[in-house]
């Protein structure tokens, strides 16, 4: 355990969705390297409150990288410098004494700033509402072992299902696209036998809902690099082909 000294935090402050916003600098004379980055913000906030200033607003909750509530653009990277980790899993040992750390909110038209570093990510929910489910009313389910699922298929589905819905893919994408999120959700359900009945309806509905809010994928691969669960952009390819097929299959079904 050692201590980092003389850090400067340059943090975005913004009063509300329509506010102008500005950077505010704060000095951190000393912090243990065992502290997490969010604990650093906690300490800073307690200091601000005691000085009579308003605490910095940021989203956070589980602090173990699974709820997807935390966000933050730290030094130009979504979820900061550690690979495969959410902001809450960044520890101060990643930084060096004397560093200036710049913290911005995530920026996208679909993610308006609510206050300071907190943004609204509701459009991700809209995509799920459009089709990110399997219609299975409570009570009517057949025995769980009725349909065997090959292990590699279950594993691939789980890889995609690991998405925590944090929106880092959108934040990191130079185009503000949500293709990785949408494709991960699609792959999760579309790979499973249970998801086949609605596969193409789902692909069409979710892709078109995504289009209402987000930019387009131009295959930079930034989303995969920023994803705290390291979800692969191969899912985007699967989404694209499913969407194309949906345009044929859904038309056929409607014509019946």
């Amino acid at each position: 355990m050692s201590t980092l000294t003389n850090l400067t935090l340059k943090i975005w402050r913004q009063d509300g969705p329509t506010g102008q916003g500005r950077f505010e600098s704060h000095q951190i004379p000393e912090i243990s390297d065992e502290a997490s980055f969010l604990e650093l913000l906690d300490i800073l906030n307690e200091r601000l409150i005691e000085e009579g200033k308003e605490a910095i607003v940021f989203d956070h909750d589980c602090r173990e990288g699974i709820c997807g509530t935390c966000s933050l653009m730290i030094d130009g990277q979504a979820h900061g410098p550690s690979k495969g980790a959410a902001t809450c899993q960044i520890h101060m040992r990643t930084f060096n004494s004397g560093d200036e750390i710049v913290v911005e909110p995530w920026r996208a038209a679909a993610f308006p700033v609510i206050k300071d570093l907190m943004v609204d990510r509701a459009p991700l929910d809209r995509i799920i509402e459009a089709g990110g489910y399997i219609t299975a009313p409570t009570g009517g389910a057949p025995d769980a072992n009725l349909i065997p699922i090959p292990k590699p298929v279950a594993d691939a589905s789980m890889d995609a299902a690991a998405c925590i819905g944090c929106g880092a893919c959108v934040a990191a994408c130079p185009n503000g696209a949500a293709s990785l999120f949408t494709s991960a959700k699609l792959a999760h359900l579309n790979l499973l036998p249970q998801g086949q009945a609605e596969r193409y309806k789902r692909a069409e509905a979710m892709v078109e809902k995504m289009d209402e809010y987000f930019g387009s994928c131009t295959n930079h691969g930034e989303c995969q690099a920023a994803c705290p669960k390291e979800i692969s952009i191969d899912n985007i390819a699967i989404m694209n082909i499913d969407y194309l097929k949906s345009k044929f299959k859904n038309r056929k079904l409607l014509d019946r």
Binding site: M73, R107, A108, A109, G215, S216, Q224
Partner: peptide, 24 residues
């Protein structure tokens, strides 16, 4: 579409991880 998807740009430089010169 992509310009509209991020009307307010990041105010500090991005640290791109994999996006290369060609893609950008």
């Amino acid at each position: 579409l992509n310009r509209k998807a991020r009307p307010v740009k990041y105010q500090t430089p991005r640290d791109y991880q994999v996006a290369n010169f060609a893609s950008r």
